[in-house]
Design a protein around this nucleic acid. Structure first.
Length: 574
RNA sequence: AGGGCGGUGGCCAAGCGGUAAGGCACAGGUCUUUGGAACCUGCAUGCGUAGGUUCGAAUCCUACCCGCCCUGCCA
């Protein structure tokens, strides 16, 4: 990792869009740096449990923890908090690593697993028993709940709380040796059953659980709880700043109690608010339900806010990091509008995505005065926002497809597109004027007849003539068929989880979140593009090649539509 | 109800006793071979409420109101 860095922080502070440069966490870290609290070190970590895929909320956490380590010239670890063998799988480890790398972060050789600390944790537990600070308890789960008390009533001491150190040592060894049945005994911290902080009411440190661990097989039949694992893991790794969700704020006294009782190195935990997004759900359990109950097609369904879903949808890591920088960091509850995320990908793709012509809902146009059989290759710039993007050639011929929405027989005011008697520009090609239309028996327009002006090649007119509209098109003879998947929000409610008292969020799934269009017409240059290639379909939106694409069939995902002020005008007219 | 943490424009978010940054959204406008982009303009006499301290308060004090989290041998 680069050492002294005097520039990266300044670079960030110069970016007016970045609100993270002055956030309260950085202020605390700077105070620690100034006071020499951690000998000037900054060492953070991202501690996922491998029981699901990463989502945009994790991206926020990663950007905060890793971004801070980078900016203060420190280090960051990736640690899997894998202390519950029931829910964890190796598949998730791989998926998480892939996503973190994809986001653009490299933890180098600092990849750790809490489960690798099991032996140390076991020794820590014995140390607490020896200090009289932990005891083996025989209460059943139900009994323990009763003894714990309530939010307003204090708990009462377990009848097993005063076992001798010797007996506790023997019993705990017995737990490890498999002498007791699952759930029959626990090791508990001896703290204070009357504490107003429920986490301090003699929390469980170890449970008996005969389940194979994905990394350690059947080596263990007792597993430490998260509370007894997390803080010590940070300590073992020499983390200076443990940045986490505000939900762990009242666990901090417990972590500190363990660390102080164990007399081991103590990191500083700082909490921030988790991300919430409109029209979706974030939260491992809910996402898992969507995937496992088949409401979506896997963890990488483009409608999901998972990183793999966003990737498949066409989001770039740069756009996601930009989003995370823009939303800032605080402790206040928040609900970010999905439009904020969309802004970041549009901004990113506007600068980078090659423009191509594609017609999603085609209607044929015949240019009556264009020579039959003639084909011209026309120059088209690949990206007007990028002067280095170059140009390509696209074929033009007598019959083309245009968007059905770009023609109206009886247009309203402000409709700048094709209509009988109207002249419009075909992007990169010619001006055409509509003469008449052919309809089928149902009255639907099936063919639009036009004439073109040969003097307007390239889309220019020397006589100063102005046309109101510019249409995208594709030569019928050269067009390639494609499947295009249009996505809308996964939920119909802004806050599916809070939409109605006592209702199930799943009922707010949007039945129209996926619309598949077949026989869309795209320009031939798109043949052979690899998955994840991203384009702007001119005048429509940003699209990305889906991995379902074969040599026979192109499949595109719509990442996000272009902003559409015509749609707004239409809405206002209704 | 006990504890913890929050409350600055529609959504985020700076602000740290000297008179409300910025982004998204929205509304106008300029420009335009994408109704895109870019550019310009507008958008909190107000910081949960009520008092108080002060020459001066979003910032300090007091009380109250509202929201979120905590009663897994999940993380």
């Amino acid at each position: 990792m680069n050492r002294p860095n005097s520039n990266s922080k300044n670079r960030i502070q110069e970016d007016p869009n970045n609100t993270s440069d002055t956030n309260f966490i950085r202020q605390e870290i700077e105070a620690d740096l100034a006071s020499g609290r951690f000998e000037g070190r900054v060492h953070t970590r991202f501690p996922p449990e491998p029981s699901g895929y990463l989502h945009i909320g994790h991206a926020k956490a990663i950007c905060i923890s890793y971004g801070i380590a980078e900016d203060y010239n420190g280090f960051y670890n990736l640690r899997f908090d894998d202390s519950n063998p029931i829910t964890e799988e190796h598949e998730y480890v791989e998926a998480i690593k892939r996503d973190v790398h994809w986001l653009g972060f490299d933890w180098e050789d600092r990849e750790f697993y809490a489960s690798d600390y099991f032996e140390t944790l076991y020794e820590y537990a014995i140390k607490l028993i020896e200090k009289g600070k932990a005891y083996v308890c025989d209460l059943t789960p139900e009994e323990m709940r009763t003894y714990r008390g309530t939010l307003v009533a204090p708990g009462k001491n377990s009848p097993y709380r005063n076992r001798s150190i010797e007996e506790n040592l023997t019993l705990f060894q017995g737990m490890r040796n498999g002498e007791f049945s699952d759930g029959s005994r626990t090791l508990r911290a001896k703290i204070d059953m009357t504490s107003p902080n429920l986490n301090m009411r003699d929390p469980v440190m170890y449970r008996v659980l005969r389940a194979p661990h994905y990394r350690h097989g059947n080596n263990w039949c007792i597993y430490p709880t998260y509370d007894f694992t997390h803080g010590q893991s940070d300590s073992i790794e020499g983390i200076t700043h443990s940045l986490c969700d505000v939900q762990f704020e009242d666990h901090r006294p417990l972590y500190d109690w363990f660390l102080e009782s164990l007399e081991i190195y103590q990191p500083r935990q700082i909490e921030f608010a988790r991300l919430n997004l409109t029209y979706t759900v974030l939260g491992k359990r809910k996402l898992k339900i969507l995937v496992e109950e088949g409401h979506v097609n896997g963890w990488d369904d483009p409608r999901l806010p998972t990183l793999s879903g966003l990737r498949r949808r066409g989001y770039t890591p740069e756009a996601i990091r930009d989003f995370c920088n823009r939303i800032g960091v605080s402790k206040a509850d928040n609900l970010i509008e999905i439009g904020q995320l969309e802004y970041s990908i549009r901004d990113d793709q506007n600068k980078r995505a090659p423009r191509v012509l594609a017609v999603l809902n085609p209607v044929k146009v015949v240019i009556d005065n264009y020579p039959e059989g003639q084909v011209e290759m026309l120059d088209a710039d690949n990206n007007p926002e990028d002067e280095n993007a170059g140009t390509r050639e696209i074929p033009f011929s007598r019959e083309i497809y245009i968007e059905r929405d770009d023609f109206m027989e009886d247009p309203p005011r402000k409709f700048y597109r094709l209509a009988p008697g109207r002249e419009v520009r075909l992007k990169h090609a010619y001006y055409i004027t509509c003469n008449n239309v052919v309809k089928d028996d149902a009255g639907e327009v099936i063919e639009i007849h036009c004439t073109y002006d040969p003097e307007t090649r390239g889309g220019w007119s020397d006589d100063g003539r102005r046309v109101q509209g510019t249409l995208h098109w594709v030569s019928a003879e050269h067009a390639v068929d494609a499947e295009v998947r249009l996505y809308d929000s996964l939920f119909t409610e802004r806050e599916p989880e809070n939409a109605a008292e006592g209702t199930d969020w799943i009922q707010f799934l949007n039945p129209d979140s996926l619309e598949v269009l077949n026989h869309c017409k795209v320009e031939p240059s798109l043949v052979g593009a690899p998955p994840e290639s991203r384009y702007q379909f001119l005048r429509i939106g940003y699209f990305c090649i889906d991995p379902d694409t074969t040599s026979e069939q192109l499949v595109f995902n719509r990442t996000v539509p272009l902003r559409d002020s015509w749609a707004k005008i239409q809405k206002g007219q209704k």
